[in-house]
Design a binder for these strands. Structure first.
Lengths: 189, 189
DNA sequence: CCCGGTTGTAATCGAATGATAACTAACGTC
DNA sequence: GACGTTAGTTATCATTCGATTACAACCGGG
């Protein structure tokens, strides 16, 4: 019975390439957000998505393109979240609360940070710069914030992002020390 | 003549382990600042320091320990720079100027950022958190800044750090777009 | 002068990794 | 119900990389 091992596989649902791509991007978001670009293997992504590693490559071409697609998607979602927040109240405070939410979910923000640190790669840098520039514009357009206000907003965001990467903010937090409480301010996340 | 190839090697200076360690840390700083922890090989560090790869391992034990030592050293230098600036003028403005200098040199700051993104590694995270906490304390102690002032200071710093990683600030800059000018503000670096 | 300790290298290894190739099974359609 | 197309796999490969081992050259002291 050389079959048995395959039953589980055969039972798995067959998806269209587009659907599978979505699942893979979800998995890639999780994987890259913890390991970063260089520190994550395509096999880790594949296992998370319960798919074979070569299939990941076949769909995205290269690991690099998979990472870029993941960053794009993360930025799409971040902008969407901001737009949603602005729809309720078009203020920096509202977007700030949305950012706290994103930080609590951790993955979108962290993948963006990993994008920053992978910007030395000529195929990644341009995309990351473009998306960060778009986020800046989005913030200003949605809230009408001044140049200075938007800069301060993003600065606070970047500090929280770094704290998130250090596991000081967001889920899976480390035991809190005094300096962490100071730096977190009123952001309880 | 199985000798000839070795002449170049023999001509190289012999250093004490401690001296060599310093040279290796310099090389590691450069290498890790562009590639990050996972994206840099011990061989790259070795070539930069003009030393064989196994010797790098012998001196530092593991790549992980080399990275940790590099982060420690980078943070030492950052704190030293702050102390030096505070000796001239113990104000946030003075430290801010010092930060701009560090950003222009690029490597110390970038390695710290790579430390953040490598914090998921249980051997790296604690060190990075400890050092960042120390930097916060250093800023407050040197300038007498309030909790809020220090937080804003570090927030601005983290924004600039991220911009540096994206090659928007610091050396080897990308062509400037409007949003970059906005976010850089008066930091010409 | 030689000998123990130190600095450093070459050779090599095993595991991991991204990518390719060849193959298989399911689905829709005529 | 055969057939082309699409989804997905297993097997495999060439590299790369961190680490180990064994060895070589240099140096200072007795």
């Amino acid at each position: 019975m050389p079959w048995q091992g395959r039953v589980a596989f055969v039972a798995r649902t067959r998806l269209t390439a587009e659907e599978r791509q979505e699942e893979l991007l979800d998995a890639a978001l999780t994987a890259f957000s913890t390991g970063g670009y260089a520190g994550t293997t395509t096999d880790q992504v594949a296992r998370l998505a319960r798919v074979s590693q070569p299939y990941v490559i076949r769909i995205f071409g290269t690991k690099q393109q998979l990472f870029v697609a993941t960053v794009q998607r993360a930025c799409d979602r971040i902008e969407q979240r901001f737009q949603q927040a602005a729809a309720e109240s078009p203020t920096l405070e509202s977007l700030g609360a949305a950012y706290d939410d994103l930080l609590a979910q951790h993955e979108l923000i962290t993948v963006l940070l990993h994008g920053f640190t992978a910007s030395a790669d000529p195929a990644i840098g341009p995309v990351v710069r473009d998306r960060f520039g778009r986020i800046y514009r989005t913030v200003r357009d949605l809230t009408g914030a001044s140049e200075t206000e938007a800069r301060d907003f993003l600065a606070k965001g970047m500090l929280l992002t770094c704290l998130g990467a250090m596991r000081v903010a967001g889920p899976d937090q480390v035991p809190r020390e005094p300096w962490m409480i100071d730096l977190l301010g009123d952001h309880e996340a």
